[in-house]
Amino acid sequence: MLRFAGFKLDQQRAELCSADGVAIKLRPKTFEMLRLFATSGGRVLSKQELMEAVWPNVHVGEDSLFQCIRELRTALGDERRQLIKLASGGGYLLAAEVETEAEVSAAHAEVQPAIAAGPSLAAEAVADRATVSKKPEKSP
Score class of each variant (00 low, 15 high):
Pro119Cys: 02
Ser139Thr: 14
Leu50Val: 15
Asp10Glu: 10
Ala125Met: 05
Cys68Ser: 09
Arg43Gly: 03
Leu83Ala: 04
Arg35Met: 00
Thr74Ile: 13
Glu124Trp: 09
Val104Asp: 15
Ser139Leu: 15
Ala114Ser: 12
Arg129Ile: 05
Ala114Asp: 09
Ser46Cys: 07
Glu137Tyr: 07
Val22Asp: 07
Ala125Glu: 08
Leu34Gly: 03
Arg27Cys: 03
Arg13Trp: 01
Ser88Trp: 06
Val54Lys: 02
Ala96Ser: 11
Ala109Trp: 04
Ser64Trp: 10
Lys25Ala: 15
Phe4His: 05
Lys85Leu: 14
Ile115Phe: 12
Asp78Phe: 10
Ile24Lys: 11
Ala96Thr: 10
Met51Ser: 11
Ala75Arg: 03
Gln112Asn: 06
Arg129Ala: 15
Glu101Met: 12
Arg13Val: 02
Glu101Phe: 12
Ala116Trp: 06
Val58Thr: 14
Gln112Lys: 14
Ala14Trp: 06
Gly6Leu: 05
Ser40Cys: 05
Arg13Cys: 02
Arg13Glu: 13
Arg27Ile: 07
Pro28Lys: 01
Leu93Glu: 06
Ser46Tyr: 05
Leu94Glu: 02
Arg80Leu: 09
His108Asp: 10
Leu34His: 00
Pro136Val: 09
Phe37Arg: 01
Lys138Leu: 14
Arg35Trp: 04
Ala23His: 08
Pro28Thr: 07
Leu86Ile: 03
